Simulated scan of single mutants.
Amino acid sequence: MKKLTKILSRLLIQKTKIEYLYKKSSAKHLICENYSRPTPETAEMNFWLDAQYLQQPEYRLPDIYSVTLENVIYSPRNNLLLSNFPCQIIADSLPTPYIPKNPTVLADIYLRKTAKISGICTVFVSYYQDFYHQIIDNIPRLYLLQNEEYAKLESIQIICPRLTPFYEFVLPKIIPENARIIMVEEHKNYRLEKLIFTSFLTKFNSGFLPKEYLSFFAQKVYPERPRKKQNRIFISRQKAANGKRNILNEEELFEILRKFGFQKYFLEEMTIREQMDLFYDAEIVVGAHGAGLTNIIYSDKINVIEIFGTKFIWAPNFYFLAKSMNHNYYYLCSDENLDYNDPNLWQIKLSTYHRFKDRDFMVNVSKVKELLSSIL
Score class of each variant (00 low, 15 high):
Lys116Cys: 11
Tyr74Phe: 15
Lys113Ser: 14
Leu106Thr: 09
Ile117Gln: 14
Asp50Trp: 01
Met45Ala: 04
Ala107Tyr: 12
Ser75Asp: 02
Tyr128Ile: 13
Leu94Tyr: 01
Thr39Leu: 07
Asp92Gln: 05
Ile99Cys: 12
Asn79Asp: 15
Pro100Arg: 05
Pro97Arg: 07
Thr39Ile: 04
Gln88His: 14
Tyr59Ala: 00
Ala43Gln: 14
Tyr65Cys: 08
Asp108Leu: 06
Asn84Ser: 15
Asp92Ile: 01
Pro97Lys: 10
Ser126Ile: 10
Ala107Asn: 07
Thr104Lys: 12
Leu81Pro: 01
Phe124Trp: 10
Thr122Ala: 06
Ala115Met: 12
Ile90Cys: 13
Phe47Ala: 04
Asp50Tyr: 00
Leu69Met: 09
Asn102Ile: 03
Leu81Val: 11
Ser93Thr: 02
Leu61Val: 03
Thr42Val: 08
Tyr59Pro: 02
Tyr65Glu: 07
Leu69Phe: 11
Tyr74Thr: 10
Asn79Arg: 15
Ser83Gly: 06
Arg60Pro: 00
Arg77Pro: 00
Met45Asp: 05
Thr68Ser: 08
Arg60Gln: 09
Asn102His: 08
Leu69Ala: 13
Ile64Asn: 07
Leu80Thr: 03
Lys113Arg: 14
Pro62Cys: 06
Tyr74Lys: 04
Thr96Asp: 06
Ala51Tyr: 00
Val105Cys: 13
Ile120Glu: 12
Val72Gln: 11
Met45His: 03
Val67Cys: 08
Ala43Ser: 15
Leu61Asn: 01
Leu49Gln: 10
Asp50Met: 00
Leu80Tyr: 01
Leu61Ala: 00
Arg37Lys: 15
Ile73Gln: 03
Pro100Asp: 08
Ala91Ile: 09
Val67Glu: 02
Val105Leu: 05
Pro103Ser: 11
Lys101Cys: 12
Phe85Asn: 15
Asn71Phe: 05
Asn84Met: 07
Asp50Ala: 08
Ser126Gln: 06
Thr42Lys: 01
Ser36Arg: 06
Pro40Ser: 07
Tyr110Lys: 05
Glu44Ile: 01
Ser36His: 05
Gly119Glu: 06
Pro103Val: 02
Asn71Gly: 00
Glu41Tyr: 13
Ser36Ile: 09
Ser75Met: 11
Lys101Ser: 13
Glu44Trp: 03
Thr39Pro: 05
Arg37Ser: 12
Tyr65Leu: 13
Asp63Ala: 11
Ile109Arg: 03
Ile90Trp: 10
Phe124Arg: 07
Asp92Thr: 03
Leu61Ser: 04
Arg112Thr: 12
Pro76Gln: 05
Val123Cys: 10
Trp48Asp: 05
Thr68Met: 14
Met45Ile: 15
Asn46Gly: 02
Phe85Glu: 15
Tyr127Ser: 09
Glu70Thr: 15
Ile64Ser: 09
Ser118Arg: 12
Tyr74Asp: 06
Lys101Val: 11
Ile120Ala: 12
Ser83Arg: 04
Pro38Cys: 05
Tyr65Ala: 03
Ser66Trp: 04
Val72Leu: 10
Ser118Asp: 11
Thr122Glu: 00
Pro76Leu: 01
Pro62Arg: 05
Leu94Ile: 14
Leu81Phe: 12
Ile109Pro: 13
Ser126Gly: 14
Leu111Ile: 02
